[in-house]
Amino acid sequence: MADPVGYRRAAPGTQPEWLHPPYRSSVGRAPTRPPVRAPHTISEITGPIFGHDRVGPDEVDLTRQHGAPAIGERIIVGGRVLDEDGRPLPGTLVELWQCNAAGRYRHPLDQHDAPLDPNFTGFGRAIADAEGRYRFVTVRPGAYPWRNHANAWRPAHIHFSLFGPGFVTRLVTQMYFPGDPLLPLDPIFNCVADPVAQQRLIAAFDLESTVPEVALGYRWDIVLRGRAATPMER
């Protein structure tokens, strides 16, 4: 059997290094030895494929998962899941989690003195359609303090997790909002050296997906690794 064609490697600076001292938690957890470079075998180019039955009907609208609507500014977040060649990746499982509009997560470790909303869990899930599109309705998450450094605040963000076509296309990331004054101060956002790659983390305000009288729309396309074109790129 011929060797499988692998996926492309990230260009320098387009993905974070494991050790990024301004983000304090990376210091005691980032490996100190360089990872061992390995080819993509059948074990890496394959990966779990999840069917549409994984996603319940309430999971794309985080504002209506309980008895009453969630509190906060309702927004729509949608876009396409693509590979590096711009090809849509239909069937991709997209998981999302976030804090509420006041900047508080529904999690026992989050002791930030901000109210919990009994009508907001902060978890959603979708499967990208035939054109690679996904769409969530949620509330705009609040900024919140953390103890990384003096007077540290995380910019508003939504966590995203994606399973692409193979295990090596796995991506977990965070989406940010345009014009957030906290972005230049955030060591997590600023772990990406390449400015073009970094801009990928910021959604765009989108009048087209804005629903009149209902919610502002934000567009965020997510790009996963593409296939190597030649064996040399493996």
Partner: peptide
């Protein structure tokens, strides 16, 4: 060719999502 979306940490509240 599009640049891939960078990775970001799962953070301390990963259990909500996973």
């Amino acid at each position: 060719r599009l640049v891939t979306t960078p990775s970001q940490t799962v953070g301390p509240y990963v259990h909500i999502g996973f």
